[in-house]
Simulated assay, not measured.
Amino acid sequence: MPVTTKAIVISALKYGEADLIVKAYTFSDGLKTYMLKGVLKSRKGKFKASLFQPLTQLEIVAKHRGKGTMEYLQDARVAHHYENLHTDVVKSALIMFLAEVLRNSIQEEEANPPLFNYLENSFIILDQTEQIGNFHLLFLLRLSGFLGFSPEASQKDLACFNLLEGSFQEFSTNEYCIEGENLEILRRFLGINFDELSRIKLNQSSRRNFLNMLLLYYELHIEGFKKPRSLSVFNEIFS
C-alpha cells in the first residue's frame, strides 16, 4: 500500500551512470533508502535530480516494504521552497555539513515525529535567517536530545562537564571532562532558542573548538559516528 508522507533528503549518491540512491528521513517511517533509475540521464522522467539536494523538504508517495530494503518512490514534489539555502555559498556549505552529520547520526527506520518536526522547522529557520555563525552549534546540541543523549543540565553550575556521561560534575573523573571556555560556551547554549543566537558572540577559534567538542560528544554516544568529511571545507568557508 503506497504511503504519502513528508520527507527530508539526507543524501543522494550517484550509482552507475544514471541512477541515484537517495536516503531520506520520512515522517511516516524514519530513515528510508530509494533507488531512482535513470534520473541523471532522462529529461522526460518523473524525477529531476534537483529534487534531491541535501535537506530538501519533499512530499513523497512511496511503497515501504520493510526495514533494511531499498524502497520504491512513486512520486515526489517540493513541500517547502527554500529562499536561499541552496544558492547562498555559506549556507550551502553549512547544509552539506549538517546533512553529513545527519547521515552519520540517524539510523532508525521508524517514525519519530518530534525529530522530524525539529529538522523541518530548523531548516526553515536557517533559510530565513542571516545570522548563521552559531546556528550549527545550537542545532547539534539540540539534536542530541532527539537522539537520546542531551546534556543533563539541572546542575550546569558545577565545575566540569563529562562528555562520556552527558552530565555536569564537581570534579574531573576522566579525559572526557571539559572545563574552561568550552564549558562556559556550553552553559550559554543550554536552554536557548535559535532566535536568541545573536546574543552569543564567539570568535573563529572558539567556535571551531566548541564544534570539535560537540563532534567528539557525538562520537562517544553514537556507535560508528565519524567526523564529517566536509568538516575541513566547512571550516575553510567559515574562517
Results as ranks from 00 to 15, higher is better:
G30M: 05
T129G: 03
L186W: 04
V3L: 13
G45W: 08
L202F: 14
L211S: 06
Y176H: 15
R188I: 06
Y118T: 03
K6I: 00
F238Y: 15
A7P: 00
S198A: 15
V3C: 09
L140C: 03
L147F: 15
L202S: 12
S232D: 12
K227I: 13
G180T: 05
E59N: 10
K46G: 05
A62C: 13
S42V: 06
S122D: 06
L58I: 00
T5R: 01
E170T: 04
L137Y: 12
E219W: 01
I60C: 04
K37I: 07
G224R: 03
N212M: 14
A153Q: 10
G68D: 08
L55M: 02
E109C: 05
E219N: 06
K48A: 09
L85E: 02
E196A: 14
G166V: 12
T69S: 00
L85G: 02
S11C: 00
A79R: 07
G145V: 07
I10K: 02
S154V: 11
E184R: 13
L214N: 03
Y218I: 08
L73S: 04
S154K: 14
M70C: 04
Y15R: 02
G145C: 14
V233P: 00
L147W: 12
Q74G: 03
Y25E: 09
P228R: 06
Y25V: 08
F135C: 11
N209E: 14
V89S: 10
I125Q: 07
I192V: 15
M96S: 02
Q74T: 01
D127A: 08
Y218D: 06
T69W: 00
V89D: 07
L115I: 04
E83L: 14
Q155P: 00
V89H: 13
D29F: 13
S92E: 05
P151Q: 05
T173K: 06
E59A: 02
T69M: 07
S198V: 12
T69Q: 10
L94M: 15
E110M: 11
V22D: 03
V89R: 12
V101N: 01
S42F: 04
L164A: 10
L58T: 01
L140P: 04
S150P: 01
G180P: 03
R43T: 13
L163H: 11
S144I: 13
P114Y: 11
Q155D: 09
R103Y: 06
N212H: 15
L31A: 06
G30P: 04
F27V: 08
K37E: 09
H221S: 05
L102H: 02
F47M: 06
A49H: 01
R65H: 03
N209G: 14
G145N: 10
N193L: 14
F194I: 11
D19N: 14
P2S: 09
F146W: 12
N182L: 07
